[in-house]
Design a protein around this nucleic acid. Structure first.
Lengths: 223, 223
DNA sequence: GCAAAAGCAGACACATCTGCTTTTTTCGTA
DNA sequence: TACGAAAAAAGCAGATGTGTCTGCTTTTGC
């Protein structure tokens, strides 16, 4: 996605862009189609991010991928930037949803949770998310969207872990380490896996050992 | 850097592009200036990668950053692509050099080595390298350059670690785990630090605990 | 049913990037 | 000192991306 002029003024009269207050004010039928089209565009954007990377994702490509005209797309987002921002938010929602869904069927042991997290990182959604996170390093507007999203994700992830393993609440310091270690290691491994392939064996070794490390950190197992 | 046509045929008569056989065949004086200009261009590219990201690094920007004309740049590299590839190789060399340099003055304990690695990841060079590594996911030509580079880096890193801690040679399995764990965790943390800031406290906690984990993995400390 | 509004498509103008070609400058060497 | 090759600058045409604008179709609310 090429350099675009800095965001336009929100222009209050227009179609509500990111927030979807419309559906509440006007819960009528046609708005449903609109939402569906937006979804199609966002999903197309995600696919493009995976296929072409952020650098080479362009509005024509997204439109083509979505099977829509570029005009249609700019009707819904009016900006390449806004499309990206909306996509980032949507990716966040998807990740969160996936976690919630997994949480229900999860055994309450570290191994399961670890592998659940890892599985998430293998999904294309993670690649797309990573592309945007990386882009946000130099795109302040994207960063402004990413920041709260990331914060919420960490909170939810924190909550889920505590919910599954209440004993951790006894030692929040150790818990913090365990979380940080898990997150950074797994995400680092996921990224390295994408660029320079890692053999499955190494992945297993790391996962297994990480599990051991976490178990050692658990309050009831410590001296 | 925008989509460019797939690589041109090497055209043997031209100025030797990546390999610098020129300096050997023609070790004369003026070639030194040429090499210097190449360096200037590559360094400018690195700075651009950091400032603008790969997506928004363009040949005009690089030329301006280098204080040269675009024509001059295409005289030396004839291709935006080749410039990026050369930059990737150069970044690799720089990383390797930094490691070798550090290796000399290093105490032989895990903590020092860990922090040495971490310090490398805080340098702008790592960001630039990461930008290219990420780009190589969808750019096969870049990937073709990255692959051997990465392999060599891993080997050197492996060698260095063994050299500093010969006792690891006794248990290569544990060694492999320790290396993978260290690399993935630190790199993951470095990347997360760039996009969404991590507080220094957490970083310290992770580093300290990682050190402990590695010590536990050491052959002479195990049961 | 009809006017207003939204969904959608295509065309337009502007900007910019890319690679190529041509010209000027620099500088070593005969 | 003058020649010639390499370095550097400048100019050019093609391609592509971006945002805006206009027009057509469909839905919605009165």
């Amino acid at each position: 996605m090429k350099a675009m002029p800095t965001q336009k003024i929100p222009s209050p009269g227009k179609t509500a862009s990111i927030g979807s207050a419309r559906q509440l004010i006007e819960p009528t039928a046609q708005a449903l189609k609109s939402a569906k089209t937006r979804s199609r565009l966002i999903d197309a954007t995600i696919r493009c991010l995976v296929k072409f990377s952020y650098a080479d994702t362009t509005t024509p490509k997204v439109a083509e991928e979505a099977g829509l005209s570029r005009g249609a797309m700019l009707h819904h987002f009016e900006n390449g930037r806004q499309l990206m921002q909306a996509t980032l938010v949507e990716l966040h929602r998807k990740r969160l949803r996936a976690f919630r869904r997994a949480a229900g069927t999860l055994d309450h042991d570290a191994r399961t949770l670890l592998h659940a997290y890892w599985d998430q990182l293998l999904r294309p959604n993670f690649i797309a998310f990573q592309e945007l996170a990386n882009a946000s390093r130099t795109d302040k507007e994207l960063a402004a969207v990413l920041e709260p999203v990331r914060r919420e994700f960490d909170e939810r992830w924190h909550e889920l872990a505590i919910e599954l393993f209440p004993e951790w609440a006894d030692d929040l310091a150790a818990f913090k380490i365990a979380l940080a270690l898990t997150q950074n290691t797994l995400e680092g491994m996921a990224l390295n896996r994408v660029t320079h392939g890692i053999d499955e064996e190494t992945i297993s070794l790391v996962l297994d050992h990480l599990e051991k490390v976490i178990l050692d950190l658990r309050p009831d197992r410590r001296s």
